[in-house]
């Protein structure tokens, strides 16, 4: 009896979300069919749905999905490691932190993707360029949130550790890091979003690689339905990373 509301509460949000999405799609379909929305600007949701088959069979969307996901994974890996390490470093060195924090924040808002010619010159027209742009653009939120996470660690928790004679490295790994982890992961997730947006953006701009290039090609052919279907795969990459990051966070907390 006591478990039932809990079980309901678990599926209810998901059901509401999916139901809401279906309702919006149905409404869009209706508005287009009634002629209230121009179908040359917004394709019919049913056409988008049908074109999934086409882009899977004809446009190799799955291998493009893997290419973009792979680039995003490489960027995510670099963002997490470098961002958390730099954040921890800045937290330790107050002067440096105060010197850097505001321009790192500024960098987070900069459209780094527009620097792609520079990256092309340095890394060439290949996946490395794309990964590096994803990495650089995802870095600032990861750094900032890591600093914030460590700064928010309650002093008393560290005192507990010191009272049990923990070494500095034990204090870090057993207390400061797990305590900061939830906030760090907010930063990592934000960084992942920034990375993915910029990765797809630069694929689009340099017409190279995964889903971004496909979106570019479909747009040039004015195949709007297929283009929207391709964008759905970009969203799929992001969903995939979101779930993976939550799993990783839980695993890290459990092993801390």
């Amino acid at each position: 009896m006591a478990n039932r509301p809990l079980a309901e509460a678990k599926c209810l949000p998901a059901a509401l979300g999916l139901g809401g999405l279906a309702a919006v799609l149905a409404l869009t379909e209706m508005l287009i069919r009634l002629g209230w929305v121009n179908r040359f600007i917004v394709p019919l949701p049913s056409e988008v749905f049908v074109s999934f088959e086409r882009i899977i069979l004809e446009e190799n969307v799955l291998s493009r999905f893997l290419a973009t996901a792979g680039e995003a994974l490489a960027a995510a890996f670099l963002v997490s490691l470098t961002g958390v390490a730099l954040g921890a470093f800045l937290h330790r060195h107050r002067l440096l932190r105060r010197a850097c924090e505001s321009w790192v924040a500024g960098l987070a808002a900069a459209p780094l993707v527009l620097l792609y010619p520079l990256f092309l010159v340095i890394f060439g027209r290949n996946a490395l360029t794309i990964v590096m742009i994803g990495f650089v653009s995802g870095l600032p939120p990861a750094i900032l949130k890591t600093v914030e996470g460590f700064a928010g660690t309650p002093k008393v928790l560290l005192d507990v550790g010191r009272s049990f004679s923990l070494s500095p490295s034990q204090l870090f790994w057993k207390i400061a890091f797990p305590s900061a982890l939830p906030v760090i992961f907010v930063g990592v997730r934000l960084g992942l979003m920034f990375s993915l947006i910029n990765i797809v953006g630069v694929e689009f701009l340099i017409n190279f690689g995964g889903l971004g290039q496909l979106v570019n090609e479909l747009a040039e052919r004015y195949d709007l339905a297929a283009m929207y279907a391709a964008i759905c795969f970009v969203i799929l990459v992001s969903v995939f990373f979101f779930i993976a990051s939550e799993k990783l966070e839980r695993w890290l907390l459990r092993s801390a």
């Binding site: 309650p154 005192d159 507990v160 305590s179 982890l181 907390l253």
Partner: peptide, 11 residues
């Protein structure tokens, strides 16, 4: 030592 503030590890 037992501290005045909340000191359990929430994780």
């Amino acid at each position: 030592m037992v501290f005045q503030e909340e000191s359990t590890f929430p994780w």
